[in-house]
Simulated scan of single mutants.
Amino acid sequence: MQPPNPRYQGYRSFDYLEPHADFKVFDLAPEIDRVPAYDLGLSAEQSARVSRLLTEHMAISLHEHPKVLTADVTLLRDYNRTGRNVLGYEGLARSGMTALFDNFMNGTNCVTSEHGWKWDDVIYDLGLRFADIAKQDFVVLARTVEEIEKAKAGGQLALVAGLEAATMIENELDRLDILYGFGVRQIGVAYSQANQLGSGLAERADAGLTNFGRRAVERMNRLGMAIDISHSGDRTCLEVIEHSAVPVFITHAGARAVWPTNRMKPDEVIRACAERGGVIGLEAAPHTTLSEEHREHSLESVMDHFTYCVDLVGIDHVAFGPDTNFGDHVGLHDSFTGHLSIGQAHGHVEHPRVPYVAGMENPAENFTNIVGWLVKHGYGDDDISKVIGGNILRVLKEVW
């Protein structure tokens, strides 16, 4: 974890409102020091190099959910029903990141329904988050590469709005334009369940990209909206890659050859993505990117997927999308397992259950530990620069 960014002046979500009178207040999880710090055993010289790399280069998370969860996860539904998700400004100020793709929590939002992916709930999520961001000047909404670069130059953190699935557009193609107009610059095709565009990875059969899905991919290309296939079925992934005129992202996943569940991507999909110029971001949500060598989920498990993917498709096509938040992520999964089809996606391969992913527990610590691991294992500055942000920027320059 890095020292606090001097641009951060202590703002907390919705400070412009009166607590209890204007919004319901919940006890929230700590943004920093919720779990013990992860010790990589770096020397003073190595630690200094980590700080230098994060200062000199772009560090971009391809997939996060930087909201702060309730301290008591059984209250998450009540919290989500308010529509007001607290953004972890304090934690982000210590992250060392230049930018992050915020994918909100649309699979668990329940403002108007007990089920996720509703259009009205997405609008609540986006609008309230953007209003909150507008009331401070540390986190800035980024819609172009130039705005990310400007944030870096000014010591700010760029937030790119993304959504994990296009389920909420239903059969309304123009809703993609509306989302783009609001500032959304990345969207997934399907979450684990199938939708109008294509199949999700939790379905028993994958019929591929639908005719409507093909039109949606074309519209996203025309808009300049990055496409994510992390939660799509294998056939759907391949057909999206083939049909898109520009590279696509696997924003948060791992290699099925390393850990055999549907949540991971097979070599065929990872290769196809890379061959068209795309990038895979390595996932770190609890009990996803495990490995035979490190079955107890930790930074080491995640990096087993990293080294495999680098060997498979090369250093230019690998990045990180840790998929973390502030609070009890395991408790979140337990609370919403039915809504998110977690059982079907993660499979039933036996592994130790952990209370959190050591070394990649939250957005505040992820990139310090990722860069620390890369430094410890002898990676050069150029390669580190590519995987922590350079590869993502290359794709964005073509897509946006």
Score class of each variant (00 low, 15 high):
residue 387 V to M: 09
residue 198 G to R: 00
residue 132 D to V: 11
residue 128 L to Q: 13
residue 373 W to R: 02
residue 158 A to L: 07
residue 298 S to R: 07
residue 385 S to H: 01
residue 378 G to H: 06
residue 227 I to S: 04
residue 365 E to M: 12
residue 267 D to T: 14
residue 309 C to W: 03
residue 201 L to W: 01
residue 276 R to L: 00
residue 273 C to Q: 03
residue 79 Y to C: 13
residue 283 E to M: 06
residue 123 I to G: 01
residue 258 V to H: 04
residue 119 W to A: 11
residue 152 K to A: 13
residue 235 R to Q: 15
residue 365 E to A: 11
residue 397 K to I: 00
residue 40 L to W: 09
residue 28 L to I: 10
residue 39 D to K: 10
residue 42 L to K: 07
residue 349 V to R: 15
residue 361 E to C: 09
residue 29 A to M: 07
residue 115 H to L: 07
residue 346 H to E: 05
residue 146 E to K: 12
residue 80 N to C: 05
residue 398 E to N: 07
residue 220 M to R: 02
residue 353 R to Y: 10
residue 21 A to Y: 02
residue 240 V to A: 03
residue 29 A to D: 11
residue 241 I to A: 02
residue 231 H to M: 10
residue 155 G to L: 08
residue 195 N to Q: 08
residue 233 G to R: 05
residue 338 G to K: 12
residue 138 F to H: 10
residue 394 R to S: 08
residue 111 V to Y: 02
residue 192 S to N: 15
residue 22 D to C: 11
residue 289 T to D: 08
residue 99 A to V: 03
residue 20 H to L: 10
residue 344 Q to W: 09
residue 181 G to D: 15
residue 142 A to Y: 11
residue 196 Q to S: 15
residue 272 A to S: 13
residue 157 L to C: 13
residue 351 H to W: 06
residue 117 W to C: 08
residue 72 D to K: 08
residue 20 H to R: 07
residue 6 P to T: 13
residue 366 N to A: 15
residue 366 N to C: 15
residue 14 F to C: 04
residue 266 P to A: 07
residue 376 K to C: 07
residue 25 V to A: 11
residue 30 P to Y: 04
residue 300 E to P: 01
residue 179 L to R: 04
residue 239 E to W: 02
residue 26 F to I: 12
residue 95 S to K: 05
residue 162 G to M: 05
